[in-house]
Nucleic acid binder design. Structure first.
Length: 488
DNA sequence: AAAAAAT
């Protein structure tokens, strides 16, 4: 099919005429798989279909290729129709998008439902109401690649799925969840433990640096949550985990986990050891195009849920920049706004551990109370610093990209980019920017982001970020304390 | 450049 044909198809699709056709095309390979499965279960004849030409491997391959092409076209041209919607339309023509409006409709185990309510969840969030029916579908839970903005309830969605699918009578690992940092792995674990606290003898273990088990151990915990290095050891080198009995696999912050520059090697090596019956879930707020393509390659027959562009808007986060001429001036500017930003709590991001160290010591020398967290610290120190910050003992946390993703601290209302996020080639890192400022404004609350810009080169990066999100970043003077406090 | 790490 030529590019022009596709353009035309998309145009008609926009008029809503081709929806079912498109759905058929996409579902072909899956249906074939389904049929093959039935054959092995009960070898019957392929009862006649007037058009009884056997579907060849080539046809399937072509359909798959077409589907992925369509998928791409949809993302580019029809940002408001996701694959899920198409599939659901086919299932139920009356409902434009099948979703649940309450947790009861998901038929959770009673002890799990109890935990959900005890955590204060009343109704599913948007991502949850769309994803959960597909993730929990019985007997055919879907593999999923989901993108949804920070603070919209992704964690609860996959935690609920893991908890629904483990059987606590079986004392072996049934769910594995990978996250890019120690702190995030622990935070996910805290959600698992809270949500599952009424489940009989649910056991969770953390495959993170420093958690050492004796050689030859066999893990009997139901859920294993961890970071890539340790998890790889536990799964492959040390064989603590029987991979054949894993039924759910989650990659949180999936884009860093599978990006070449991220934790790709280790994540993929773990993923390859899983049985092909294992349910795969990839969650993140951002996916660069190339990463999304790769995600589609490693997950078989996934439902892809992506947000409409306009919902990715950052509308609830006010963004400013402060012009400085050098590092020292940035420090002075920060010092000036210390009073204003400590009305709430703030996270301050630096590009390197070194800058973070320097900034923290400058600030403390000046008598400002700040916390410092980077990968340079011991594990116990990291957890202690985070705990203190969560308890509000420090109003400011100076950190690196280690804290850019996933960390959920309700009281954080301000994010300061002491250094703008840049990638290896020095270009604006828009994904990291979105994740960083997503530490504030969670669950629809308002937030504030302040970017420090020093040298012309930085102004250029800031403009790249502005263009990427189509949002103005306004200049801010740090001299007028009153004005500042109004904004904060 | 940061994070992961039983290297």
């Amino acid at each position: 099919m030529s590019g022009q044909d596709w353009d035309k198809a998309i145009e008609e699709q926009e008029k809503g005429e081709l929806a079912s056709k498109v759905g058929n095309l996409r579902l072909n390979p899956a249906e074939k798989q389904h049929a093959a499965g039935d054959k092995t279960a009960a070898p019957t004849q392929n009862t006649g279909d007037t058009n009884n030409k056997e579907e060849s491997e080539e046809d399937v391959a072509k359909a798959v290729a077409d589907a992925s092409l369509l998928n791409k076209a949809l993302h580019n041209k029809l940002l408001d129709i996701s694959e899920t919607q198409l599939e659901v339309q086919q299932k139920d023509p009356n409902s434009p998008l099948y979703s649940v409006k309450s947790f009861e409709e998901l038929h959770l185990k009673p002890d799990l439902l109890k935990g959900v309510y005890e955590m204060g969840f009343n109704a599913p969030s948007k991502i949850q109401e769309t994803a959960l029916p597909l993730l929990l579908a019985d007997p055919r839970p879907k593999n999923m690649i989901a993108q949804s903005q920070s603070g919209t309830g992704k964690t609860a969605a996959f935690v609920l799925t893991m908890l629904s699918r483990v059987n606590t009578n079986n004392n072996w690992p049934q769910a594995i969840c990978l996250a890019p940092t120690l702190e995030l792995a622990m935070q996910i674990g805290a959600v698992v433990e809270q949500m599952g606290k009424n489940m009989k003898e649910l056991k969770v273990i953390y495959a993170v640096r420093g958690n050492k088990l004796p050689r030859g151990s066999k893990i009997e915990h139901h859920i294993v949550i961890g970071t890539p290095g340790t998890m790889l050891d536990w799964c492959i080198k040390l064989r603590f985990i029987d991979m054949n009995r894993i039924t759910v696999f989650v990659l949180d912050e999936a884009d860093v986990m599978i990006a070449t520059q991220g934790h790709q090697d280790q994540s993929i090596r773990i993923q390859r050891k899983l049985p092909n019956t294992c349910q795969m879930m990839l969650f993140s707020a951002t996916y660069e195009d190339s990463v999304m393509q790769f995600a589609n390659k490693i997950v078989s027959d996934p439902v892809v849920i992506r947000l409409r562009r306009e919902e990715e808007s950052l509308a609830n986060i006010k963004q400013f920049y402060v012009l400085c001429s050098n590092e020292k001036e940035k420090y002075e500017a920060l010092s000036n706004i210390y009073g204003a930003i400590t009305i709430g709590q703030a996270m301050i991001f630096c590009h390197t551990r070194k800058t973070a160290n320097w900034l923290a010591s400058q600030m403390s020398r000046e008598g400002h109370a700040v916390g410092l967290l980077s990968g340079e610290l011991d594990i116990s120190q990291r957890l202690a610093v985070l705990k203190r910050f969560k308890e509000g003992k420090e109003k400011i946390l100076i950190t690196t990209n280690v804290m850019a993703r996933g960390i959920d601290i309700e009281q954080v209302t301000i994010v300061v980019n002491f250094d703008l996020p840049v990638d290896m080639s020095g270009q604006a890192d828009c994904e990291t920017y979105l994740h960083r400022i997503g530490r504030t404004g969670r669950f629809g609350k308002n937030g504030l982001a302040i970017n420090f810009v020093d040298r012309p080169r930085n102004m250029d990066i800031l403009q790249q970020i502005e263009r990427h999100f189509g949002r103005k970043i306004l200049p801010l003077s740090t001299d007028d304390a009153e004005e500042l406090e109004k904004i904060v």
